[in-house]
Simulated scan of single mutants.
Amino acid sequence: MVRTPRPSRPRRRVPRPLLVIGSVVAVVALLAGVSMVGSLVTTLFQTLSARPPAVDTRIVAPDESKAAQAARAGDRNADQNAAADWLATQPTTYWLTPEIDPVDAVWDRVAHLAAEAREQDAALSIAIYGLPDRDCGNHSAGGLDPESYGTWTARIGDALGNASDIQKIVVLEPDSIALSSSCGSPADRASYLRTAVDNLRGTDTWIYIDGGHSAWHPVDEIADLIRATGLLPSVRGVALNVSNYQDTAAEFAYAHALSDRLGGTHALIDTSRNGAGPAGTQWCNPSGRLVGSGGGAYGDDVVDTNLWIKPPGESDGECNGGPPAGTWWPASAVELTREQR
């Protein structure tokens, strides 16, 4: 009996264009996979390499600071120009306010500061100062309504997230917690601050909330105010002595006492204008003050480091002969830098 071979199944011919398309899709998928893996590796590396501020941290000297603007103008007397020139080169925190950097412009400002940080091989340090009912109607009154504040801080957070390759230090709303009890709005302020923290946190972003200073609230009192915000442990720590003049040693002691009460939270200390110490109880443009130690000079297991947070040469407000808060004041710049030039 002769077996008749069964016919083999005919091969399906794939048109050449489909073969090409399939090959392209496979390559694209491979590259996408490689890209995704590369992105994950980069993110992991950035996360693992992130380190909090410490001794020797150097922050940006912003080219759009008010000192830098005054230095470029060069339209004052010799001492005032020299003071502006020197201060313009000093690493100093840049203050983001909605009056100068509104919602539609703040992303670009942060991106510019981040580019400067890369150029200067430095960390980016910003103070965010736009809280609703800011300064409780005092010299620095202003700020945004709650909805706009959420939008504004989200824009800032997006810009910070776009700069994942650099270290970012955020001083969030100086005076906001220390003033909250006298303003009668602790719960509202805590809610605004929590929104801001949610919007701002990200890779290598170190957030410090307001901790007042050693001559303001007793340590137990400020610890209670901070604890009530619900912001710990989602932030790195507290910023102390911002825009004030207290001795560095006093602030270190205060930071340690506060850390003991708050479960080991860390601190930054503003030394921008405390070179001559405080002037009694005066805080608004006291005379005879000096710039303090440059940023990154000190630190320990609680105090991450010191920084210049309040820009020297900017007024505290319309007091003791000063112009409105935040305005460049040439006479103050000269006085603060008299031993540096």
Rank of each mutant, 00 (worst) to 15 (best):
V235N: 00
W308F: 05
W216P: 07
S35N: 07
V55D: 05
P15M: 04
D270F: 09
V219M: 00
Q340Y: 11
I309W: 02
W86E: 12
G137T: 10
G313R: 03
R261S: 12
A122M: 03
L31S: 09
A122F: 10
R227T: 14
D210I: 01
M1Y: 11
V303L: 07
Q80H: 13
V197R: 08
N306E: 05
A190H: 06
T4L: 10
N199Q: 08
T327H: 10
V25W: 07
V238E: 01
T92M: 05
D56Q: 12
T327C: 10
Y129G: 04
W95M: 08
R227Y: 09
Q90A: 15
W107V: 15
A111Q: 13
N138A: 11
L18Y: 13
A61D: 01
N199G: 07
Y245S: 01
G317F: 13
D101L: 06
Y298S: 10
P330S: 10
V170P: 00
K66S: 13
L18M: 12
T327Y: 12
A249W: 04
D158R: 15
P98N: 05
G317Q: 12
E314I: 02
G150Q: 05
P286S: 07
T153C: 08
E318K: 08
I269D: 01
P278C: 07
W95G: 04
A163H: 01
A253C: 08
G292R: 09
A71R: 06
C284M: 12
D198S: 10
A122G: 08
A29G: 14
T43A: 15
D247W: 15
L96D: 03
S234C: 04
S23P: 02
P278W: 05
A50T: 00
V60E: 00
D135V: 07
E99L: 11
E221K: 08
R109V: 04
G150W: 04
N77E: 14
I269G: 02
D165P: 03
M1L: 11
Y94V: 14
A196Y: 06
D101Q: 11
E318W: 02
G74I: 08
E251I: 05
N81T: 12
A84V: 02
L124H: 04
T42P: 06
V197D: 01
V37R: 13
W86R: 09
E173L: 04
T97I: 14
Q120Y: 13
I126Y: 07
W206R: 04
A331R: 03
D260K: 14
R58C: 07
L30F: 12
E339K: 14
S315G: 09
A255I: 06
R9P: 03
T265W: 00
L307Y: 07
A84K: 03
Q46C: 08
T203W: 13
G264F: 01
L18A: 15
D220K: 04
E314K: 01
G74A: 11
A82D: 05
K168G: 03
D300A: 11
P15K: 15
G275Y: 03
A249R: 09
S35T: 11
R118C: 07
A29H: 06
I169C: 00
A83W: 09
P330M: 10
G142T: 09
A68R: 11
D204A: 15
Q282R: 10
V14N: 04
R261P: 05
A70N: 02
A115P: 05
A253P: 06
P132A: 04
A190Y: 08
A117L: 09
D79R: 14
G161Q: 03
L268P: 02
I156A: 01
S125Q: 06
